[in-house]
Design a protein around this nucleic acid. Structure first.
Lengths: 132, 132, 132, 132
DNA sequence: GTGGTCTAGACCACC
DNA sequence: GTGGTCTAGACCACG
């Protein structure tokens, strides 16, 4: 599993890790039962402190996404996929909704909003498609 | 001018005030030259700390949206409308962009995203249309 | 609020704090809406590291027992009493159950168990009653 | 001898094994002189690491419950019954005591506690009695 | 080797 | 003043 951390984007590092693990599970990159990298491995790999990774993993355990096998490490829980998929949808929907709501409330017209959304979508797909 | 503050949504209170003032100017609710509520009034009205309101006002002054009238308080600057309109677009675009980006990065397909956006737009326009 | 910590009883310190806060709420010592000691205060008062107290408080927030008032501190949530009361009952019941179950499974007779329980209860009530 | 291990209940696995061996001896399921499963057998049978079983056995030897028969394995010591019976009482009493103590400290009344205990006892005896 | 806990000390944003 | 995050380094129990 690969994990990209941006230490200066305002979002707490442990939350970035949390989210990326969840999204990986929701996207079938991480399968139920599979072991995840040890805290020490992920810490060195991402140049983040061990405690920070441990915190992310701990919170994922609290949410039932991971479960610990004593002395052996952490693995994705059997029912993690459902949890993560629901979570992903919820997170994305919430942010999208608040953004659109703000746009709408500030008296921007619906067609203006649509135009903006389409422009962004084009940008995103071209970023991932052709030119890097 | 009415200002709604949510103390626990993660967005700094002073920033919420800033945004709402700017959006009010951009939406012609606050007109250039018009006086705005005193720091104390807005503070008591919104149950927010005086320092926090003062900070928001100060930053609005720094950006040229407000200007002080000696001994009388603060008023909307003459060229505030242009500033705020541009600002509004920028702010909304930024938030929308980051929301869409996240959706896209989480391996949600573009068509799924579009569907979600449309659903939200319908919800918003129906909220403002018929039933309150 | 007073909090007693035993650093060497095997139970994590943050968990001891968590439990004592919950029990205080369940026992009406801490009332909904009431402010709790700041992390720094409780830390010095109990001779525990600030981070450890902060962790306990954070987990209590996650469970909806506390809520933070930005820049002001933490307070007991409005519906904390119900949560804590249920939690208390659950915790106690679980431990009692597992203890009794073990006793029973090891072929100790029910009357023996009852005797043991009564002896303990007498000990406990006399500890708190008369002689210290 | 049958041994049930729960890898994630907080109690160290070696301790679970220790307890269960002792309780088996105290309950006349394992008789003095009888051989116990080899480290490897118990390990595979319970899906536990060999080292962990070895550790449990070693500690049982240290306490005089088991003794090694050169080249043949381990057997229950001749005076193991007395040791284990006393130990069983001690272990059960300790756990029961701490559970009751916690209940009491959390401001639950003695009569409430008694009620809870009785309910649990009823449940236990009915579980073993009629319906499996 | 694994995760878990704790400490100490620093820095930040917010009020 | 408040809580929140992060780092560094230590120690522990478990396998």
């Amino acid at each position: 599993m690969i994990c990209h951390i941006d230490a200066n984007n305002g979002i707490p590092i442990y939350e970035q890790i949390e989210r990326q693990v969840k999204f990986a599970v929701a996207g079938r990159t991480l399968l139920p039962g599979e072991r995840i990298p040890s805290v020490r491995d992920l810490a060195t790999q991402t140049a983040v402190n061990v405690n920070t990774v441990a915190r992310a993993y701990r919170q994922l355990q609290d949410q039932g996404v991971l479960h610990s096998i004593r002395g052996t490490g952490l693995a994705v829980a059997q029912d993690a996929f459902e949890i993560c998929e629901a979570e992903r949808r919820k997170l994305i929907q919430a942010r999208l909704r608040s953004a659109l709501q703000e746009a709408f409330q500030s008296q921007m017209s619906l067609s203006d909003i649509q135009t903006l959304v389409e422009a962004e979508c084009r940008r995103l797909s071209s970023d991932s498609d052709g030119s890097p």
